[in-house]
Structure formats: C-alpha cells, structure tokens
C-alpha cells in the first residue's frame, strides 16, 4: 500500500481552525472558574457564610441570581466561594494519582520481572474495586474532611495512572523509532529521556485532564454523602446535600450547585481537548 505517500505534506501544527461556539462557551466557563478561584470577590459581593434572616429560601432574582438557602445565604456567593475548595481538592487528588501512578508505572515498565509482576498485581486488585467505593474505604481509614476526601480520591486513581503509564511506556519502548535510536548509538537513559518518556507522557496528560473532571465528581459525591468538607463550608457537593431538604419547594438549591459541577467538568474536558489538539 502507498499509505505513506497519502499523507500529503501539511503543517497541522499551525492550522488553527475557527473556534466553535461550544469551545468559546467552554473557554468562558474555565475563565470564570479561574476568576472564582483567584478573586471570588469580583464575581459576588455577598459573604458566603453570612445568614440573612430577611431573605430565607428566596427564588432566583436580580439581587440573588441563584436565590438564597434556608439561612438566607446567597447561593451565588456560596457557589463562587466553593469553587476554590473543589478545584484545590481535585488538584490535590490528581497530583497524588499522577505522581504516584507515573513513578509506579515507569518503575514497573523499566525494571520488569518481579517488580512489574508485583505492581501489576496490586493494580489489578485496586481496579477490581470501584473507585468511589475505594475512596470511601480510604476515608474510613483517614477520617472525614475536605483534605482527606481529596487524598482518598487521589489514592483511588493511582491504579489507573500506573496502568496507563506502564502500558504506554512498554508500547513506546517497542516502537521502531526507539530501536532506531538505540541503533544510532543512544544509551538506555538517553533514549528513555528523549524518546520514551515524552512520547508516552502525552497519553498520561490526556488522562490527567479526564481524571481532574472525575475528581471533581468524586469529591463532591463524598461531600454529598457527608464525608468531605463539614458544614457550613460552601463545597458544591455539600450545597446539594443541604439543599435536598428543600428540593420540593426550592429546587434551585439542588439544581444550581449540581449544574455548576456538570458545566465545570464538561468545560474543563472540552478545553483540555482543545489545548491538546490545537496548541500542543
């Protein structure tokens, strides 16, 4: 076949096609998230913790765009101020998963043999337990709290990162260009650093973006169940849990923080996809 020749010379790197509406929206959401983390005061002037007995359970209005909760606290302010907790928690979780997973996967692939067998077996076991359940087990061991929930979610995602890093490293190591580099005189260390690691890491980085979204979901699920940040913290999952008592009369207390999670996760994954395709 002549597939080699079908690849017409193109400079894909520089072909920035028009940004679609969905991508614009995702970019705006991510920008808002960044602002909410760095300077929440720019988006809302209410104190997320201050009750207002005069404005209890108000439906969305000009004064309170997202309404108020059972203590009269402004929901917009609580969602905005909750962003930093959710994002930091997810970042902690991803750093733990990515860090440990990368090292373990690389070690398993590089040393092989018994080391690989032991690591792979542990990964198998970890993967046989659903992530949410596993993070609950870790929470039982560590105790409740925002940080512990983040650590639990991070620990639960180590196996996924390890497996991907290991398999990517092994796949890339088996590719002809790695052999070619050895053939041209490259030592193991040179080839590992110059070719194997950069080429296997791009897949791991895409997984990182995916796992960041998952971490947001898992951490908010743990908070929803009451294992994460304690009240009156404005953590998103906790907001939903607090709102559930009033779901019949004031559904926005559940729906708005819930949608905040959905929209953030969707936008982050969309933007990371965009960055991967167009910028890198």
């Amino acid at each position: 076949m002549t597939t080699a020749d079908l690849a017409v010379p193109t400079t894909t790197r520089f072909r920035l096609r028009q940004i679609s509406v969905v991508e614009w929206l995702a970019l705006v959401v991510v920008a808002l998230l960044v602002v909410a983390v760095i300077a929440p005061g720019l988006l809302t002037s209410y104190d997320p913790l201050a009750p207002d007995p005069a404005a209890i359970l108000q439906s969305p209005s000009a004064a309170h765009p997202f309404g108020t909760d059972y203590l009269g606290r402004d929901l917009l302010s609580r969602v905005v101020h909750g962003t930093v907790r959710t994002m930091v928690g997810s970042a902690v979780a991803v750093v733990i998963g990515l860090g440990l997973g990368t090292v373990l996967g690389l070690v398993a692939a590089y040393f092989g043999g018994l080391v690989d067998a032991v690591i792979s077996r542990i990964v198998d076991v970890l993967l046989s337990i659903p992530g949410l359940l596993l993070s609950m087990v870790v929470v039982v061991a560590l105790g409740f709290g925002a940080l512990n929930a983040a650590i639990a979610v991070g620990v639960s995602s180590v196996a996924v990162f390890t497996r991907l890093m290991r398999s990517e490293t092994l796949t890339v190591t088996g590719l002809p260009f790695v052999e070619a580099s050895h053939h041209l005189g490259g030592t193991r260390r040179q080839v590992l650093i110059r070719h194997v690691f950069p080429n296997s890491y791009s897949a791991v980085l895409s997984l990182t973006a995916l796992q960041f979204g998952l971490a947001i979901l898992w951490i908010s699920s743990l908070s929803f169940l009451g294992y994460g940040a304690p009240p009156p913290e404005p953590e998103w999952g906790l907001l939903v849990a607090e709102g559930r008592e009033y779901v019949v009369s004031s559904p926005w207390l559940v729906v708005i923080p819930g949608l905040a999670i959905t929209v953030s996760v969707l936008s982050i994954s969309r933007v990371s996809q965009f960055v991967k395709e167009r910028v890198l």
């Binding site: 979204g213 979901l217 908010s220 699920s221 929803f224 999952g237 939903v240 849990a241 559930r244 779901v247 019949v248 559904p251 559940v254 729906v255 819930g258 949608l259 999670i261 959905t262 996760v265 969707l266 994954s269």
Partner: peptide
C-alpha cells in the same frame, strides 16, 4: 455520553425525583 459522564448522579436523581 460526555454530558452524562460529567453529571453527578445526585443531580440526575433529584431532577428525576422532582
């Protein structure tokens, strides 16, 4: 599927319930 994957099931549950 991407939307479903990004939606926490407690949100789905409450919406269905309501």
């Amino acid at each position: 599927p991407a939307v479903f994957l990004s939606t926490p099931s407690f949100l789905v549950g409450f919406v269905l319930l309501v």
